[in-house]
């Protein structure tokens, strides 16, 4: 059992928790993920590590309530326990030789982008961050990004906070002005990452994308997290759990990944509604 040491709502749909898991806290690096189960009948879900505190033995996770499992997790209180918490999994984000980096986060993807930005800042790289949200209410981690970025641009789709528009607009402006990033790292919705890649393409700047497909074991056994890369015109199958989650954005087949991500959409909607009904009484009381 793994204790929830702290719990905080970052916005109405996004929650941050610190979980007691000393072995994971000691090892996890930016870009890696964990697999958790809330209770004994629960499904295994992957969540990217949003930070660690090796001294306290805690691992920070930030998640959006999108389905039944994240809803159940959200209902857990500080001091309560979850059944399973395993990691760190996946390959850490590659940082060698990168002196000037552009980090682009979208929505809850910013929770994963933030420790990556912090790591580059710690290593002395010049960090340009662009973070985007649907609206002001969904904004998270602005202060944290400010602290580790040389430049920060905040975007909202509806203009309810900071700049109106999506994250590719400031990226395009930087690139048009001739900024030469060693690497662009983007983490967020697949469609956003796809457009970041398209924006960067004419300028020949490498793009790393962080993939978050459906997973079960997360340790290189089931193959559910597979995705297709286009390597010199040849289709290659890779597994996000052991080969990723970071991949070369120019090689990823985003359309296929988006389609695969919707495999259980219908099922998940029913499960989510059922869970919400289950928690309705509790929500009203609390």
């Amino acid at each position: 059992m793994y204790k929830i040491v702290t719990r905080k709502s970052l916005n109405p749909t996004v929650t941050q928790m610190e979980i007691e898991a000393p072995l994971v806290a000691k090892k996890a690096k930016p870009g890696q993920f964990i697999i958790l189960r809330v209770d004994d009948e629960g499904e295994r879900i992957p969540l990217t590590v949003a930070g660690t505190n090796p001294e306290n033995g805690t691992v920070k996770i930030i998640f959006q309530i999108v389905g039944a499992t994240t809803k159940k997790l959200d209902c857990k209180k500080e001091g309560e326990y979850i059944t399973d918490f395993a990691g760190p999994l996946g390959v850490p984000t590659h940082t060698d030789g990168i002196k000037k980096v552009c980090i682009i986060g979208g929505g809850v993807g910013c929770a994963i982008a933030m420790p990556v930005a912090e790591e580059f800042h710690r290593l002395g790289a010049e960090v340009t961050s662009i973070i985007g949200f649907r609206n002001k209410d969904l904004l998270i981690l602005e202060d944290e990004f400010n602290a580790c970025s040389d430049r920060l641009t905040v975007m909202t789709d509806d203009g309810s906070y900071a700049n109106k528009g999506n994250v590719t607009q400031p990226l395009k402006e930087y690139l048009e002005k001739g900024e030469k990033f060693d690497m662009i790292i983007t983490i967020g919705p697949l469609i956003m990452m796809k457009f970041v890649v398209e924006t960067a393409k004419p300028y020949n700047i490498p793009v790393t994308v962080s993939m978050n497909p459906i997973m079960i074991d997360g340790t290189g056994m089931c193959g559910g997290c597979r995705l297709s890369l286009n390597k010199d015109g040849k289709k290659v199958t890779k597994f996000a759990c052991v080969d990723g989650p970071d991949f070369n954005g120019y090689e990823v087949d985003f359309d296929e990944a988006m389609s695969r991500g919707r495999m259980y959409a219908e099922y998940e909607r029913h499960a989510y509604e059922k869970t919400c009904n289950l928690f309705k009484g509790a929500d009203n009381n609390g």
């Binding site: 079960i216 074991d217 290189g220 056994m221 089931c222 193959g223 559910g224 597979r226 995705l227 297709s228 199958t237 597994f239 052991v242 087949d253 296929e256 389609s259 695969r260 919707r262 495999m263």
Partner: peptide
């Protein structure tokens, strides 16, 4: 370890499982 696939077109379609995933 990791499941093998045949390398034929369509193996990433929804409804294609490895036996490991289906059984797990």
């Amino acid at each position: 370890g990791l499941p093998n696939f045949m390398g034929i077109p369509g193996e990433s379609l929804k409804g294609v499982y490895s036996a490991n995933e289906f059984l797990t």
